[in-house]
Design a binder for these strands. Structure first.
Lengths: 298, 298
DNA sequence: CATCGGTGGTGCAAAATCGATCCGGCTGGA
DNA sequence: TCCAGCCGGATCGATTTTGCACCACCGATG
């Protein structure tokens, strides 16, 4: 196998016309160039240059090689400029993964703002049900609700956000009807895989024993809006929904803490830094809402 | 300026998935690869790989580099091919790739003859299990069994050879014993990855349901010689082996067609032309044997 | 004819690279 | 649970490559 770096020396000699001129351009001694060219010719089994007293001149074989050598140089230059360019340029793809509830009920306006602010950043929101794997580079940034800090992957870098509380909610109309003595049963609305959280009490209202199960968080919200019963929701969903109220006599409970997670490599890029700083600021502003503190509605 | 040769190391790691695998392929120690990659990353000012416990994985930057690195490799291969293609002297290297079975059981004497005839040609037989890549200049000439003409690479030049038939064989002794009524079971001997070809019947003999599996063609031949059972073999192997006979009642089946493949640039060289013409003649002479026609033995 | 600025080529010591190990961590199968 | 087989990383002589000085040669020039 030839040494690819010898091609660089070959190009320098072909252009400089002499070993010494090439050496000067390459910043090495001419003897080095001499040896590298000799090595290249030996490995290729052909003379690239005629060794004239006036300098090195390309042979016919050398002319043919020159063409491919130029190609290699072009690729090399392109490689360098691309790597160098990507580091500091804002332009490029940024993939963010977060829970669907966070996206639809809280952060989508902020993501939109960020996209407006940086039109060169191509954004991709990976908001499927499952956790995207940052290590596999399925996403560059993850916004996660972490229940136990110890469950954070060690290889990821975390930026802690505000804490997230949840409560028990029901429809305003249903609550009014219940107070008026409506006989219809009030049911627990739960997401199938979760069940009724142990911290959630029924407060003043009483539910029937048969829960109403949904598979999807969105369906759960629609169901509770319809007055089907009571359910647990993050405060930023329940409090922000004008059709819902907290069930009297129930308490808040901490869901977990929001974390902004990034991966070692990608963390250093400008795009990721811009995004994490932006979202971090917005999350701080949301802290009272997330904590379930009273919010003024207009 | 980056060392172009480091790109070769980069490619090896990107393909091998680990520093050690790359080192193996490059024929150097893994510490060398480690240093070259570190040097490349330092000079480019960007991480090309994520250093995971399970190996090296390309970063986003690395993915972009990979594309250009492949371009450089293509240029390099083309360069080597072109230089080789200009070489009209008989003296020099000639690399031939062919299936191990073809080499050991059929063509080795012919290759030896050719080497004797042209002592100036340094020959290298690349007869590993896997197909050598002519475009990568791993070999100059390939002798292949082609099952479907459409699978021939378009960029290669093909010279069609005789057709190749196979049959079902067993040991003479075992057949005699079976005729004498020996109770020992006769088994199918198959190469693990292939299984029993659908065209192969058991003829007059009956086999037990449990096949005997080998991973290697040579082991398969030894097994059938030992009288372990019956197996499918190319006729040039089975008919030429005095210890083996075709299983009565079985038919021949076409394996494929032999092709002499050469690459565009190298086809013009004297060495390659001499070799292809020589082998082509020898193969024609073998046509009856390859087709499974009766051959006189002496 | 001597000189000067250019060329390629060579020998030797310094410097950089590589080979060869050893080590600790991770993983998957026994 | 342990252990074999991977992996990357660190280290230290040995080897290769490079820097550097020096040489012979050629042609132009005064």
């Amino acid at each position: 196998m030839i040494d690819w770096d010898d091609i660089r020396y070959f190009l320098a000699v072909a252009r400089g016309g002499s070993v010494r001129a090439a050496a000067e351009g390459l910043g090495v001694y001419h003897s080095t160039v001499l040896r590298r060219i000799a090595q290249l010719e030996e490995r290729l089994g052909a003379q690239m240059f005629e060794k004239l007293p006036s300098g090195y001149r390309l042979t016919a074989a050398g002319e043919e090689v020159l063409e491919l050598a130029n190609q290699m140089e072009a690729s090399s230059h392109q490689l360098e400029t691309r790597v160098f360019g990507r580091d500091q340029s804002v332009r490029g793809l940024l993939r963010v993964t977060l829970a669907p509830t966070l996206a639809t009920h809280l952060l989508m306006p902020d993501l939109a703002d960020f996209a407006c602010l940086h039109p060169d950043i191509e954004m991709e929101i990976v908001s499927s049900g499952e956790l995207a794997n940052l290590t596999n580079r399925e996403a560059d940034v993850a916004i996660r609700v972490v229940y136990d800090r110890k469950t954070l992957p060690l290889n990821l870098h975390g930026l802690k956000g505000p804490e997230l509380f949840g409560g028990v909610y029901m429809s305003c109309d249903r609550l009014a009807a219940w107070r008026a003595g409506a006989p219809d049963p009030i049911r627990w609305i739960v997401i199938s895989i979760h069940g009724i959280p142990d911290w959630a009490s029924e407060g003043e209202v009483r539910t029937t024993g048969v829960p109403f199960r949904t598979t999807d968080g969105e369906a759960q919200i629609v169901a509770v809006r319809q007055g089907l019963g009571i359910t647990t929701l993050p405060c930023f969903v329940g409090d922000a929904d004008p059709l819902l109220v907290r069930v009297p006599g129930t308490d808040l409970h901490m869901y977990g803490t929001l974390w902004l997670l990034t991966q070692g490599e990608t963390r250093k890029t400008k795009r990721v830094r811009l995004f994490t700083e932006f979202v971090s600021r917005r999350l701080s502003a949301y802290a009272p809402l997330l904590a379930g503190l009273p919010i003024s509605r207009d």
